[in-house]
């Protein structure tokens, strides 16, 4: 289940990029799921522990990944910490839904991320409500921003 808290929140990692730089572990890039996320969002390919081949930037370090994919990786590996997912564009949305199918994840959103046209289940923590489509979500989320 994906839990979302909309609006400002205490005890959330706001600057996910800085946090990523300081907690990154090289084994993270060995994970096939992480490689898929990097390929999907950044259009980049993991070459080694500290090396990524980016279509736009050439060979880059993990710290040069996009803010969105850094937040996805952090959410994937650190389920007990809540991250500011407003650093993620809509092209990250399906990955949050997907990883939360296997194990609960909680994110903080300060914008209305578009989770797509297919049905889903999101638990909105602000009012303990469950929504199943963007149509339902937009009628609730804006109240908390």
């Amino acid at each position: 289940m994906l839990n979302v808290y909309y609006g400002k929140m205490q005890d959330v990692i706001y600057n996910t990029s800085v946090y990523f730089s300081n907690v990154f572990q090289k084994t993270w890039l060995d994970d096939e799921y992480v490689r898929k996320m990097i390929k999907s969002v950044d259009k980049s390919e993991v070459i080694g522990d500290y090396l990524i081949k980016s279509k736009a930037l050439g060979m880059i370090a993990p710290t040069q990944l996009s803010g969105g994919v850094k937040t996805l990786i952090l959410t994937y590996f650190k389920p007990d910490i809540i991250f500011n997912a407003t650093t993620c564009g809509d092209n990250c949305a399906r990955w949050f839904l997907d990883m939360a199918k296997k194990e609960d994840r909680t994110i903080n959103l300060r914008h209305i991320m578009d989770f797509g046209d297919k049905d889903f289940e999101i638990h909105i923590l602000n009012n303990d409500m469950f929504v199943h489509s963007m149509k339902e979500l937009v009628l609730v989320a804006g109240d908390f921003l």
Binding site: V41, K43, G67, G68, G89, C92
Partner: peptide, 26 residues
Amino acid sequence: NLMQFKFTVNRNITILRGDSATGKSR
């Protein structure tokens, strides 16, 4: 050598948003 950003700023506040990995932070 790898990127060029070309744009016009018209007013006191301009906001950049959109998908991840489009180059905003870069």
